[in-house]
Amino acid sequence: MDLTPRTVTEPGAQPPARKRRWLPMLVVVGALLGGGVVVTKFLTSAIDYYCNVDEVGVRSGCSGERRMRVQGVVEQNSVKHADGGTTFTLDFNKKTLKVAYSGDPGGVFQECIPIIAHGRVVNGVFESDRIEVKHSNQYVQKNAKRIDQANKEAAACSVLKG
């Protein structure tokens, strides 16, 4: 017995076609496809997002010739701007890597902060075209009265280095 609520129809008219809920079905299909894309991205990119400086050329998947992402802390007093580019040294676990970035990183990029550089090693220098600043999980209030500028920079450096 069909108990679907219905409107009155003319005698002999065709019964109304059963309504299908297309939108939820499309959303379910979209969610399955989107989930597939995300899982693929997870397996190809997210599991090991970067290599540490001390793993370059040592660890599997961190070969110097191929394009990769390298994580390390920007060494103090190493940042130099010249010819529209920026050079600095990345430091991690007592190993260093010279980086040449094609531009000005801008944003919160600074010395003593952990970053991830995208690029490849050419003649011992990591040539990078993209930099992401990897902020630590520590949040320190800015307070000019508490410490002078020099001490503040030194403190920030030590805090960020952990």
Binding site: V39, F42, T44, A46, Y49, G107, I131
Partner: peptide, 19 residues
């Protein structure tokens, strides 16, 4: 965008949150 310098990356946290 303001801190890392990008709106989105496919790292573990962002990818799993999107999922």
């Amino acid at each position: 965008r303001l801190t890392w310098g990008t709106y989105w990356v496919w790292d573990a946290r962002l990818t799993s949150t999107a999922f």
